[in-house]
Design a binder for these strands. Structure first.
Lengths: 308, 308
DNA sequence: AATCACTGTGTGCTATTCGCTTACAATCTG
DNA sequence: CAGATTGTAAGCGAATAGCACACAGTGATT
């Protein structure tokens, strides 16, 4: 079937509805000449007379009445479709698919979703937890959250916050650590996080000038952060964990922070979008909410500057 | 609502269906550049990202999937509509509204309709009988039949045949007319047809050279031809009637032709179309059938030449 | 890890189409 | 019979569709 100019349908329908080329042109905001031309072309395309013209009246032929009836429906549906799309592009609505690492997703994103869904009832959320770097497009991910230190490739990521890494231990174990400098930490059992690039070497700093680098001696290595937390809670050893994971255990006393004067390198919390020309409001709304949540330090502590 | 280019919907749908700009372009028979541009414009118009592109894959966004689903329906409906119109423009189909004079319509057109409907079962016929000149467009008339002598205005009429006028009378009356020349016809009662412009003056001719003009003396005047026929059948007098009306009575002997050697002026049978660019096949088919019917002289008689 | 084929997009450029202004024939209205 | 109004034709400028080409990024393959 040859492609036929669908736009002319609108002109044709306007003429039939208005019952006059002149009024249709006025309604469409263009010249009657154009309307006449366009309808004539439509007729030429279809090789049919759609309208019988008198200088005083315009009456559709049978084919014209037929086409008009169908066209009205078509145009209305098109308008509806555009309206629906406009809805999606202006209001937070639809299904929001979020990708996040297991730990951050579980500890921070998941709790936030309740609030998000309450705030934007028209949104459905789909949280995809995975520590592997997944294909955003293939998985229809609207926004992906990356925590830690980005590889060079992800330059299009936007940093929305930071997290601190805390040296923690179960209370029983913590009581055995008396030193107030990191130097001899390798004497204590350490639970290494295999998911990190350098799980053993840690750079401590204090008051902007005091720096020490310590190489820990791993009692065990676990390549998933939540499991590291579990092992630490069970008293398996010291470990370095992100603040968003240990906020609760520290508050309840299930874990104790060690060397509170010293700080470890901060990591970034980033959002990554698929390369889209326009960002749906549902995404913007969620990222705004997440950013607010993340900027509020999860654990009141000594003045660590949050990187911007 | 701003007018949005509906044609771009087709491009967009093609890309989604093909899963690739390149394949879509090939399918549409245009360059991929154009497809890319058009989809980009559609997105700009809607202020939405519809497709997430990788050089290797094209995946619709949520808005894209939404619009695609609706667009497929819209495009299919448009295609259907065009197909239906094409049906009407290529095959005899639909409702054919015919306007005809009462006499000719009753005697000739109406009987023909049975055959027409049998030949073209997809056609419905609407026969509008009226002796007044009606507005073809206002009454949705596809073809109008005019019998007789056209006024100057109707230059766009096409002559499809002719009819002869016959001087007839009921048998009883005919037996009383012995003359073989028209000269003294005014001695006999004449039934004048008030619908004619000159109901009384008749020009007889014989063998291309013998001409007589007679002024009849009306016993009665009736302004509707069928009623003239009825009065003539009842023996009310002589009358001049078109051949298509008296074919049957002459055959059965209910009427007798008088002065068979002489002939009266022939009239034309014309079809008039509303001023349309294209003629629907149903009209063409009907006119062809009517022309064939009319060209076949309804009454075998001496060789009268049918005017073309 | 490097190569290579292929994808979608940006850039000039041309042909077509859209749209406007003006003008005109036809028709209805007074 | 004027006068107004309708739809169409002609001429013209601007926007758009479309093409060929070049190019950067990606993914499969080596």
């Amino acid at each position: 079937m040859e492609a036929i100019n669908l736009n002319r349908l609108a002109y044709f329908v306007a003429v039939v509805d208005a019952g006059s080329f002149t009024r249709a042109a006025a309604r469409l905001g263009i010249t009657k000449t154009v309307v006449s031309q366009q309808v004539a072309r439509l007729e030429a395309d279809l090789r049919t007379t759609l309208l019988l013209r008198t200088t005083r009246r315009v009456e559709p032929t049978e084919a014209g009445r037929l086409l008009h009836a169908r066209s009205v429906i078509i145009l209305r549906e098109a308008e509806d479709a555009f309206g629906e799309v406009a809805e999606v592009t202006t209001n937070p609505i639809g299904t929001l698919r979020i990708a996040a690492p297991n730990d951050f997703g579980t500890s921070t994103v998941a709790p936030l979703l309740a609030k998000f869904c309450r705030t934007y009832p028209a949104c459905t959320v789909d949280l995809v937890l995975s520590d592997a770097k997944i294909d955003l497009i293939a998985h229809h991910i609207d926004v992906s959250i990356r925590v830690g230190w980005l590889a060079d490739s992800s330059v299009q990521a936007r940093r929305i916050g930071a997290f601190r890494q805390l040296l923690v231990a179960a209370p029983d174990l913590a009581r055995m650590i008396s030193a107030d400098v990191p130097d001899n930490l390798d004497q204590h059992p350490f639970i290494a996080n295999g998911a990190l690039r350098e799980p053993l070497v840690w750079h401590f700093s204090r008051a902007d000038f005091d720096r020490r680098t310590v190489r820990m001696r791993p009692a065990m290595t676990i390549n998933a952060t939540p499991a590291v937390l579990a092992a630490t809670l069970a008293g398996g050893g010291l470990s370095v964990l992100p603040d968003f994971l240990v906020a609760d255990p520290l508050q309840t006393g299930a874990l104790v922070q060690i060397l509170t004067d010293w700080s470890l390198p901060s990591g970034g919390i980033h959002v990554v979008y698929p390369a889209a020309r326009f960002r749906p409001p549902k995404v913007t709304a969620f990222v705004a909410m997440l950013e607010a949540e993340v900027k509020r330090p999860p654990i009141a502590s000594h003045g660590s500057t949050v990187l911007t």
